[in-house]
Design a binder for these strands. Structure first.
Lengths: 224, 224
DNA sequence: CGAAGCTCTCACGGCTTCTTCACAGATTTC
DNA sequence: GAAATCTGTGAAGAAGCCGTGAGAGCTTCG
């Protein structure tokens, strides 16, 4: 199972996260500040880092920068309320997600799981960037769709939906799950939006339009 | 073996439950009120919680809400007779079962076993998505039914019923229970509706139609 | 600044599915 | 063997679901 590095100067917070992490079957290691964290990262292989921003010696941002120089490890940042304005800056540094303190450990664990899943997914995609079914093909590197060799223009959402369906081919996927996984946990819109995108997407797939099958009462599925 | 948390303000009741739990080879821990229960849950990993509703400091419902925020642990509620009207509210909170006081410890233990089994069941289903019996097969990922290799179209309810019966094969399942588990706690319809669905379902199963056996006076059963 | 493109929402209409009901046949009970 | 209870079945209305087109709010681009 995955191994996490927990970085925070407050022992109490590390303890809470550690407990939850163990409950979710993750291994853990800990560091008290950015400096220690960088050191530990150089000498160990972690799958994910949970790190506070405000810390003595070396703050979370700087530590993140140092670590990313050497290794590509996903990082989830903990920030006190009010530090949110730094969000954009943080994402430029390659931070994968943010959790604002005081946080719910359960939510944090959900984010951890999501980031790890995303990472594993992209690792697989990097190995083989093309997904195909008959003459329908997508390339996750160039984010392009081709139908019988002919390139088809899709919008971002259409591409994301098609990629998601093909990555989970032959699985009935509920609208809720699709919203969660494609739009993100913080989207609170109408799930019928998906239907509209599906309609447009089908329109672009020509003779393969029926590969996207409606699963009545549930959602959709890509049939190989 | 599984570990239970017993929450009740009366020491006598905790004692009775504890004894029966130990007899059934469960580990136990105890709390006297909701507040304590929440605290203990945060610091320990329990497999199931048995909790009274009426308690000083923090009542069972509120405690349940707090706990479910952080961890997904099955909860069985103990309620005094007359508190039953709260059932709906309780199921919304994610309560897995109810036992009315004064209860039979033996029945309580049966419920505990059932809830734990159900939980394990869903964990297993995630691992192996196909259920089969001779040439009749369902795939819970793609939500498809095949008869001797030929795909058969089912409606949502037909599929749900078949999946439910096959997941509980060789068990006589009452109509009430089926309504509870398939339709949900908030369905207040006629249980003969099931009969109609069973009829339609049998029509689709061809030579395997008799695998769904009528249990007169009770309901139905899937015979392997 | 206007045009074009994208995303999301909404509501209509057609179609499928669900539910109810009544009756006939089967089974059990007395 | 008659009465009571239960299930199978077909029909029909009610309810629900999805495809679709239109359009509003935004952003991007020229």
């Amino acid at each position: 199972m995955a191994k996490l590095l927990i970085v925070d100067d407050e022992a109490k917070i590390r303890e809470v996260i550690r407990e939850y992490a163990h409950f979710n079957k993750y291994e853990t290691d800990e560091a008290e500040d950015g400096m220690q964290a960088v050191g530990k990262c150089l000498n160990n292989d972690y799958d994910l880092i949970i790190m506070d921003i405000m810390m003595p010696r070396l703050d979370g941002y700087s530590a993140c920068k140092e670590i990313k120089k050497e290794k590509d490890i996903p990082i989830i940042m903990l920030s006190a309320r009010g530090e949110e304005y730094d969000k954009l800056f943080g994402f430029e540094l390659g931070i994968d997600d943010y959790v604002v303190k005081p946080f719910s450990p359960k939510e944090l664990m959900a984010r951890v799981a999501a980031v790890l899943a995303r990472k594993q997914h992209s690792a697989e995609a990097a190995r083989n960037p093309v997904l195909a079914s008959d003459g329908l093909e997508i390339n996750t590197d160039s984010r392009t769709v081709t139908v019988d060799g002919v390139k088809v223009d899709c919008t971002l959402k259409e591409y994301e939906i098609l990629a998601y369906l093909m990555q989970n081919k032959n699985m009935a996927l509920s609208r809720d799950r699709m919203l969660q996984d494609i739009w993100g946990y913080d989207f609170f819109g109408d799930d019928r939006t998906i239907d509209t995108h599906i309609k447009n997407l089908r329109g672009r797939l020509g003779k393969y339009r029926d590969k996207i099958v409606t699963v009545r009462g549930i959602g959709y599925k890509f049939e190989d």
